[in-house]
Lab assay of single mutants.
Amino acid sequence: DEDELTGILKKLSLEKYQPIFEEQEVDMEAFLTLTDGDLKELGIKTDGSRQQILAAISELNAG
């Protein structure tokens, strides 16, 4: 699971946030449920980064 998540972050060039997800024990299943508020709480402060992550999440959820 973590590897898939790392792959997604790398694709977005946001792998610098990978340790945050690891630290908070966010797995792929949890990742797919994250909201903008969750990402802010995790410490992802950049709007653009959150938008990219949320776009990836909705794409993955759309299947």
Rank of each mutant, 00 (worst) to 15 (best):
D3V: 07
D3P: 09
D3I: 11
E4A: 03
E4N: 00
L5I: 12
L5Q: 02
T6V: 05
G7Q: 15
G7T: 15
G7K: 14
G7A: 14
G7E: 13
I8Y: 09
I8W: 09
I8R: 07
I8L: 15
L9H: 00
L9K: 00
K10S: 09
K10R: 06
K10Q: 07
L12S: 03
L12N: 05
L12F: 14
L14Q: 00
L14F: 02
L14S: 00
L14W: 00
E15V: 05
E15D: 09
K16W: 00
K16V: 10
K16N: 03
K16M: 11
K16Q: 07
Y17I: 02
Q18N: 03
Q18S: 11
Q18E: 10
P19W: 08
P19K: 05
P19F: 07
P19R: 10
F21M: 05
F21T: 02
F21V: 02
E22N: 08
E22M: 11
E23P: 00
E23C: 05
Q24V: 04
Q24H: 07
Q24G: 10
E25F: 09
E25S: 11
V26A: 03
V26P: 03
V26N: 02
V26R: 02
D27I: 01
D27V: 00
D27M: 01
D27T: 13
M28F: 10
M28K: 13
M28Y: 10
M28T: 14
M28H: 08
M28A: 12
E29D: 10
F31D: 03
F31Q: 03
F31A: 05
L32I: 09
L32M: 11
L32E: 07
L32W: 03
T33D: 10
L34Y: 11
L34F: 06
L34C: 04
T35K: 12
T35D: 14
D36E: 12
G37Y: 10
D38N: 08
D38A: 04
D38G: 07
D38W: 00
L39R: 02
L39P: 01
L39E: 02
K40F: 06
E41M: 07
E41N: 12
E41P: 02
E41I: 04
E41F: 05
G43M: 02
G43R: 02
I44P: 01
I44C: 04
I44S: 02
I44W: 02
K45Y: 07
K45S: 14
T46C: 14
T46E: 15
T46I: 13
T46A: 13
T46N: 09
D47P: 13
D47M: 10
D47L: 11
D47F: 09
G48Y: 06
G48E: 15
S49H: 14
S49W: 05
S49A: 15
R50L: 02
R50G: 01
Q51S: 11
Q51Y: 04
Q51N: 12
Q51A: 11
Q52M: 06
Q52E: 15
Q52H: 09
Q52Y: 03
I53C: 05
I53A: 06
I53R: 03
I53E: 06
L54P: 06
L54D: 02
L54C: 11
L54M: 10
A55M: 08
A55G: 15
A55W: 05
A56H: 09
A56L: 09
A56W: 01
I57N: 04
I57E: 05
I57S: 07
S58V: 06
S58K: 15
S58C: 07
S58Y: 04
E59W: 05
E59M: 09
L60S: 04
L60D: 05
N61L: 06
N61D: 06
N61G: 09
A62N: 12
A62L: 09
A62F: 06
A62T: 09
G63C: 10
G63R: 15
G63T: 11
